[in-house]
Design a protein around this nucleic acid. Structure first.
Lengths: 213, 213
DNA sequence: CCCGCCCTCCACCTTTCGATGGATGCCGCG
DNA sequence: CGCGGCATCCATCGAAAGGTGGAGGGCGGG
């Protein structure tokens, strides 16, 4: 414990060159960190995580439109002796957070985190402890407190089409349902979200990150 | 022209410490750049832009929820002998771009720009030339081609409230209008966006970046 | 000065949506 | 096995939203 431990080996994955450079700059100043590589795509992160035997992967969730961040996380953590994965992203969308944690992420940080918080999170992750940014933790607590937030698969599907601007008739055709069924789903959605119109449901769901935009 | 010109003095404004560090790291390697300061708020950017007599300000548009980026740009460029302002942001929302250009920004870059593109844009800006990221330029061309895309101030205001989930009655109260007026605005919005329902209008407008989520 | 655009408002009518109150089959859990 | 949650379906009714066709004032540019 008191002996100078082996350095924490890091892999940075983010599609923004500026962010990669920033993470390098911020983390390189920590004497016990060693940055093995930085990559611009989720695919390269998966490949190098295995090859370079790193301790912690710092990964963005949004890779230029492609939603591969959480999948990459799942693939990395699936292997035995896998490194810890720390999600580092701009948004605190509920859906993203849940997906990342289910995919096996050890922590979830926001990009506006100050450098010392970032370094602390990396050390926590390396030690196997979970690390959540305060803002993210609050959000999770909030979600736990309101159990009604969980929409069923079908309800989410319907709501997503509503958000895309489709009418009930169009949705019923798309999903091979009757309009009555679509309305039933909507009624349930409204009561779960505490709203009373389709537009309000979309607003509430996007605010809570239940559907993608 | 051939003489080693005075260095380009830069001011960086971004609320993300990591991004500030990244910009520093990327731009410091250019021998003809000199970073006068970096600040985490729009207010400080306005204050220091005057005091440090910089040549180019690199400014984020989103400052921790506050929409002050474009206002800060306007305040900086309003003064005589003002520096050029380069907007550097994550999103290519039409509304944001227009607001920034109207506020007097010299260029608009996306944060996923490679370092050399970034440096080139800074030099362009310092020389007084406009600089637009290719993706942004494309978007603007696109907008020019579809003249119907431009919503009036009032229409945007109404549509934003629709996107927030308000009913026509609620909107009319909020804006001190009659419901008839709200409906009129909506009819115009629908025809401009080529849709025929409020939810579809919201979907189309967010897709084109006309309103913020 | 007139034209066009924006903003505001009105009346009437049609369509869609939401509210209510059911029913059925399926599946997992205690 | 029975209960509850989910997904599916139904009919009816009133309310909200959308369609049509106006009208008038303000403001800027040709």
């Amino acid at each position: 414990m008191t002996a100078p431990a082996a350095p924490v080996r890091l892999l940075l994955a983010d599609d923004h060159p500026v962010v990669r450079a920033g993470l390098r700059a911020v983390l390189e100043t920590e004497p016990d960190f060693e940055i093995a590589a930085d990559v611009p795509t989720a695919e390269e992160a998966v490949a190098l995580a295995a090859r370079l035997d790193v301790d912690v992967v710092l990964m963005d969730l949004q890779f230029g439109g492609r939603m591969l961040g959480s999948r990459a996380t799942a693939e990395i953590t699936a292997r035995p002796g896998a490194p810890r994965v720390l999600i580092l992203t701009t948004y605190d969308s509920d859906a993203d957070i849940l997906a990342a944690i289910e995919a096996g992420a050890t922590g979830y940080l926001l990009k506006d985190a100050p450098p010392d918080e970032l370094a602390a999170a990396v050390r926590s992750a390396a030690a196997g402890k979970s690390a959540l940014a305060p803002a993210v933790a609050l959000r999770l607590m909030d979600r736990m407190r309101t159990p009604a937030t969980a929409l069923s698969r079908r309800e989410t599907e319907v709501l997503q089409l509503v958000a895309d601007g489709l009418s009930n008739a169009a949705i019923s055709k798309r999903l091979f349902l009757s309009q009555a069924t679509v309305k039933s789903h909507l009624v349930h959605i409204y009561s779960k979200l505490g709203v009373d119109s389709r537009t309000a449901a979309v607003a509430a769901a996007t605010a809570r990150g239940l559907i993608r935009r």
